[in-house]
Design a protein around this nucleic acid. Structure first.
Length: 409
RNA sequence: CGGGAGGUAGCGAAGUCCGGUUCAUCGCGCUUGGUUUGGGACCAAGAAGCCGUGGGUUCAAAUCCCACCCUCCCGACCA
């Protein structure tokens, strides 16, 4: 992608509307466009990261046997009345009437709808277990949207639902999802903590949360000064009796054993081996995909900008050409990088070097390649690692080998 | 929903107390021409504003008064 033709428009000043790091940097680097408080559009850069995170999620979901679907955002109020959650979630639920005077809601979550789907299609133990998931936009009328994409009224969520014949099956799927989550967050470059949690309005009795320690976190965990373990309560460490510190956390994922709360209320029944009709045993598993973006930025940045982990960065390489006369050479190198499977943002603009460097740092792609004056004599280009800011001079061949090695290609 | 701060050109800000040729100003960005090109460079010329919205007070309002809207922060709330 040529920078001069891209829809990338960084700004020099910090946006006034943003206070926290992720909100500020994502707007400054034109990853996001702010429509209104708690409402954001994804520009090309932001969408690339979102897609990368989504694809990591898909990979691990599919590997654990889950199948992707896409449910409607518009839902009739009636399915919510079956479980009583039209009342429980009334504060956050966006509802309106259509032309037929029927009440519709913009789905804040999808337990009810997925249960209807399963009710229609599953009737025998032979059709179980199954896991369905989707990556989709959720709508919540938040009392106070904040921190950009951390808490917004419209956000992207991965929600998965498991369906089993018994508790043992549920336990297996719950474990499968839990380990998939650990793999997903690790691959996204997040330092996360898994902890037992309350089930809240979801129902069920077992649940775990995945948390990322960050300044702006809205949840609090107690961290042991000695052994580093985390707990909900502020008594001395149950493991080693040392003092605990409070630490703020961003919740990025939550898994629940739901049991039969929804299947009973909505009569999603199957006939078991013994001929008895039983409610399907359910679990649900959520990841705040857009919130993962924010959490990554909140924990991967410096005074110059974002430092994306390799696995999610919009581009692998930002290729900075500092001399117009070298554009033909630079173009051929960019092409060869692309042939080798790397995504390259080719900065061929006629801007001063400082502008290009600062944009590269702000956008946070992991590798910055610089071609300039020294190339004519040495035939070497410079590679700068975004994270460490270390620079080395390399030949084209050395560069490609280095990157292949870094990306395991 | 309670408390605090704020809204002036695309972005960031000054001006608001004390109303009036210092009132529409500055920096960045943008347009045109030229010089530059390994760290946000320089010169020249330009375009761009219902001073958040509506009402009021006054000879006169960005500035004073009232109402509303929007944004950020703290708290309550948060599957």
């Amino acid at each position: 992608m040529q920078y001069s033709k891209s829809f990338i428009f960084t700004v020099r000043e910090d946006p006034k509307v943003a206070e926290c790091v992720s909100h500020k940097l994502l707007l400054k680097g034109s990853f996001l466009y702010m429509v209104s408080s708690g409402i954001y559009s994804y520009l090309p850069l932001g969408l690339r990261v979102l897609e990368n995170v989504s694809n990591i999620i898909r990979k691990h979901m599919n590997a654990s046997g889950a199948q992707e679907i896409l449910m409607s955002a518009l839902q009739p109020i009636e399915i919510w009345q079956k479980t009583g959650r039209d009342e429980v979630l009334s504060e956050v639920m966006l509802r309106f009437k259509d032309r037929k005077n029927r009440t519709l809601v913009l789905g804040p979550t999808h337990e009810e709808e997925v249960t209807e789907i399963v009710k229609k299609h599953i009737s025998s133990y032979k059709q179980l277990p199954r896991i369905l998931y989707q990556i989709q936009t959720k709508f919540r009328d938040e009392a106070r949207p904040r921190f950009g994409v951390v808490r917004s009224c419209e956000f992207i969520m991965k929600d998965a639902y498991s369906f089993d014949v018994d508790e043992e099956g549920l336990a297996r799927n719950y474990e499968a999802m839990r380990s998939a989550y650990q793999a997903i967050f690790k691959e996204c470059g997040l330092n996360f903590i898994m902890t037992e949690a309350e089930s809240g309005a979801m129902g069920g009795n077992v649940s775990h949360e995945f948390m990322v320690p960050a300044e702006i976190g809205e949840d609090m965990l107690c961290e042991c000064q000695k052994c580093g373990k985390h707990f909900k309560d502020m008594s001395n460490c149950p493991e080693c009796d040392s003092k605990l510190n409070e630490r703020r956390m961003i919740e990025i994922g939550h898994v629940f054993k739901l049991g039969t709360k929804y299947s009973k209320a909505q009569e999603a029944l199957f006939i078991d081996k013994d001929g008895v009709r039983k409610p399907v045993i359910m679990g649900c598993y959520g990841i705040g995909v857009s919130r993962v973006l924010a959490a990554i930025v909140e924990t991967n940045y410096d005074d110059k900008g974002v430092i994306w982990p390799k696995s999610v960065s919009p581009f692998d390489v930002q290729f900075v050409c500092l001399d117009e006369k070298l554009i033909p050479e630079a173009s051929s190198m960019v092409e060869s990088l692309e042939r080798n499977g790397f995504n390259v943002l080719f900065d061929e603009r006629s801007e001063p070097a400082g502008v290009k460097f600062n944009d590269a740092y702000l956008l946070g792609n992991p590798y910055i390649v610089i071609i300039g004056k020294n190339y004519a004599s040495s035939k070497k280009i410079d590679l700068e690692i975004r994270k460490t800011r270390q620079k080395t001079s390399l030949s084209e061949e050395e560069l490609i080998n280095f990157l292949k090695n870094e990306y395991g290609k």
